[in-house]
């Protein structure tokens, strides 16, 4: 039997290499069984990641990587578990992860999807990249057209009086090049993937971002009908995958290396946004979080409360 593992991340991402390793582990453990797991990175199976909660339970693909933040249309409560910027340190992240994993497992269960494992996302530093002039305070951001990538960011920046606009990833390059937007919010670690260094000259760090982990899901009826030995091998390999990715010691080092590399390619790194601005930003994020949870309704308020409790807030 062959299982396909759908992965929407580009093959070049470190996470994809980890998932490739996971696949190899499973296949090695089940070498004498009639079972192979095949990894399809880069979204090459053609499944929209926003549709996963519809596709996966139907058994159209056996296993898939899922990210709660992409699933907000079908499961609005999921998008208010982790709100960007609300969780910033590794300590906070570690406190929240068990609760978050519990919430995702429950919610996906309701959709007929069994969570067989998780993939952690490195903690990221989100910076403001600008084309023509250095921007490193909220005051500077006033009157600047800022590209963001998620609705929660639009809400937060609008609260702060900054005119933020969502521009899809594939249009960001041209938008910055031509001046449709002046600046873009982006993690330095991934900036080169959209060639940001070619269209911006200045960057400053604004906020740290801890992200919800990715989940590995299998349709529940499929999972329950699967040979226990196969299940065992998958879960073991997934645990190892989690252990490998749930490491944050090197994140800051990697961030600095990424900035260094961007500098070599012509991006000037300015001073970080001041602490006072970051405090204002955090307040705005809190407000957004409350607002989103309320708006989503259903389990969202409960999820938020559980995360807040874990954070001790």
């Amino acid at each position: 039997e062959e299982w396909r593992l759908n992965n929407f991340l580009p093959e070049t991402r470190p996470e994809s290499a980890q998932i490739e390793q996971f696949t190899a582990d499973v296949n090695a453990a089940l070498a004498d069984k009639d079972f192979t797991l095949t990894h399809y990175p880069g979204g090459s199976l053609g499944i929209k990641n926003t549709d996963l909660l519809r596709v996966l339970p139907k058994g159209a693909v056996e296993m898939s990587l899922m990210w709660s933040n992409y699933l907000g249309r079908d499961a609005p409560a999921l998008s208010s578990v982790f709100v960007q910027g609300a969780i910033s340190t590794v300590e906070e992240l570690k406190a929240v992860l068990p609760v978050a994993q519990e919430i995702y497992t429950e919610e996906y269960n309701d959709w007929g999807v069994t969570t067989v494992g998780f993939v952690a996302i490195p903690t990221l530093s989100v910076s403001v990249f600008c084309a023509d002039k250095p921007v490193n305070s909220l005051e500077d951001l006033n009157g600047v057209k800022l590209r963001v990538w998620a609705r929660e960011q639009v809400e937060t920046f609008t609260n702060l009086g900054v005119s933020a606009q969502i521009i899809p990833q594939e249009e960001t390059y041209v938008a910055l090049k031509t001046g449709v937007v002046d600046c873009a919010l982006y993690p330095a670690l991934y900036a080169h993937t959209i060639s940001l260094q070619e269209v911006t000259s200045y960057a400053s760090f604004l906020y740290p971002m801890a992200s919800a982990p990715y989940s590995l899901g299998v349709a529940t009826d499929k999972w329950e009908a699967t040979d226990p030995e196969i299940r065992e091998a998958i879960v073991t390999a997934a645990d190892a995958l989690w252990e490998r990715t749930n490491q944050y010691d090197k994140d800051f080092e990697l961030e600095l290396a990424a900035r260094e590399k961007l500098s070599e390619m012509g991006v000037t790194w300015g001073e970080d946004f001041p602490e006072s601005d970051r405090a204002l930003f955090l307040d705005a994020v809190s407000e957004t979080w409350a607002m989103l949870a309320e708006e989503a309704g259903g389990n969202a308020m409960d999820y938020r409360q559980r995360v807040l409790t874990a954070l001790g807030r």
């Binding site: 609705r151 005119s163 606009q165 449709v180």
Partner: peptide
């Protein structure tokens, strides 16, 4: 709106 009033519409897309 974006060009002349610096208030982009968020619903366009």
């Amino acid at each position: 709106m974006r060009r002349f009033f610096n208030t982009p519409l968020h619903i366009t897309e």
